[in-house]
Design a protein around this nucleic acid. Structure first.
Lengths: 328, 328
DNA sequence: TTGTATGCGTTATCAA
DNA sequence: TTGATAACGCATACAA
């Protein structure tokens, strides 16, 4: 037995399909009509087909959130914030994962033309010409949580990494740490590049030289551990890491090397994700506003779906510092 | 300008829509036809509409994975495993989150009738009659990663919590720990109930009495911290926790109380998620086979989509113990 | 091999 | 207020 269609309901209720559709959509109808239709719907367990509906009305009432790595806790924060906004607006949120490769991101953006959803919220980790082009030409509204060139002509909401870096360095310097090292993620990524630049500027503002630099191959715990040894022996008393996963990976290697956090080495992460308070010692971390970025991005997406002619906005969310036990 | 349809491509290529469709689906056509169609597709940037297509062919080539909490790292492991299997089979995986409430799970299962996807892989945390009913009556194939009654008549792949508990207790006893406490999640959940039962049985097998018992309100880090004080002062030398998040929450409270892990108290988690090796000290954890469960569940789902008449299978994945630094 | 025509399940337009 | 019917974009049975 196949699922009942609107025609089946109409037959069972002894009315026309048009009337069933009207009742289901709350359009004017007599009380008796409403009652008859609702009973038939109930009896048959009828549920409207979303594909057919969206084919007709041109909207799916679904939104897609695309992230690079579901294992990165910063996305958890963001997803929760986005979910809250879009579900309150009556949309269903579906999450897909792209992986670290830009071609997969491009494929995903292009694929939106298939009509999966009414909008896309993407947080790209690598950005190239192709991606910018695909976003600009995307058939559905796109909002980028991250940094793409203004010429992309798209709503963006991004973090202020340099400012965040400055908060971290300010804090470390105030605690008397001046030999500061930096554990970055891949420099060919958008966040990687931004944080590298921010770190350099922040040190310059304090007239400091980097004590050591290293670049992990990914923004992951495993990469943090694997890359940490490059830093060791660098004569630093503090390390800033490009995200929390890297920081936690580093802390394990520091412990293995017999260094104590924060006594011997202070550690600062970035993202202020759930992991920052789960790890031990708890991690001082730059809050780059992932929850707020999620909220704002979701709001921009909803607004653009409402009116696609509005001029693109570029929102920057300001950072703050969450001080915990990994810094003195 | 609106997106091009197959009719637009046909017009541009000077052929019929049927021919375009055939070329796009790799059906026999002359070389010239293929060439003309492909050029038009290229020029217009045509992408077929998935809704219209699936409305016609009755398949979406999408699969839905529903989890309760994206913040729980055990789901990350599972999602990665599922993603690998289904994408290799040519399906697109979308993830939705249900929250801890069973009514939302039921709504999600019922909603599958809207035709969002060709199948559903769900890992329910709470199960009641309604949920079982909705799963049994679901319009698309469902596979449950977890435990539902056999009468649901559905493919399931679940963990063996009691066996896992026994591994944990065996290990602790072998290390000389006999005053073992248990920090459970909500007992009204499927995993909560299974682990409670498993714990009792495992202690009995060793002729031991529980040193202390506590029940957190959620399977989360925050709930673990909040509930830990109920355990403290219980005179235990080891604690088994119903999952890794609870264990990490507990460890923070132990540290705050001046207790050292594993010297004063040994801690064992369950799930063996990424968090177990990220936390400090690294967490001995019962591997309940989340990756394998994800793989097997995905395979079952694909098989059932292929043939919906096959008799439901109930797979049990055997646990193992990942020993780390939180136990002596 | 190619084109014409029908239907997938729904909403919206038009008459009645 | 209600009903018949034409799309939405695509795939396919059938005819040419």
């Amino acid at each position: 037995m196949s699922r009942p269609t609107i025609a089946g309901v109409a037959r069972a209720a002894g009315v026309s399909v048009a009337s069933v559709s009207r009742v289901l959509n709350g359009l004017p109808a007599t009380e008796e009509m409403v009652e008859r239709v609702q009973r038939a719907v109930q009896e048959l367990g009828y549920v409207p087909d979303a594909r057919a509906r969206s084919l007709k009305v041109g909207r799916t009432f679904q939104l897609t959130l695309a992230v690079a790595d579901v294992g990165n806790p910063v996305y958890v924060t963001m997803m929760r914030a986005v979910e809250e906004i879009v579900s309150a607006a009556g949309y269903r949120l579906v999450v897909t994962t792209t992986g670290p490769d830009v071609v997969d991101e491009v494929a995903l953006v292009r694929g939106m033309a298939r009509g999966y959803a009414d909008g896309l919220l993407i947080s790209p980790i690598r950005v190239d010409e192709d991606l910018v082009k695909s976003i600009r030409e995307c058939e559905v509204p796109v909002v980028v949580a991250g940094n793409v060139p203004a010429k992309a002509g798209v709503d963006t909401v991004r973090a202020n990494s340099p400012k965040g870096m400055l908060l971290a360095v300010d804090h470390l310097v105030a605690q008397g740490r001046t030999r500061i090292a930096f554990l970055n993620g891949p420099a060919d990524t958008v966040p990687g590049a931004a944080r590298s630049k921010g770190f350099t500027e922040a040190l310059k503002a304090h007239d400091l030289e980097p004590a050591a630099l290293a670049e992990a191959t990914d923004f992951t715990f495993a990469a943090g551990r694997a890359t940490a040894p490059e830093l060791l022996g660098g004569g630093f008393d503090a390390v800033i890491c490009a995200n929390d996963l890297l920081a936690v990976g580093l802390m394990h290697e520091l412990a293995a090397a017999g260094l104590e956090v924060p006594k011997d080495v202070a550690v600062v992460g970035m993202d202020d994700s759930e992991l920052a308070e789960q790890c031990f010692p708890t991690l001082t971390s730059v809050n780059l506003g992932s929850a707020e970025r999620g909220r704002r991005a979701a709001e921009l997406l909803l607004a653009r779906i409402e009116d696609n002619e509005r001029t693109p906005r570029r929102i920057v969310v300001q950072p703050s510092l969450s001080i915990r036990r990994s810094t003195p």
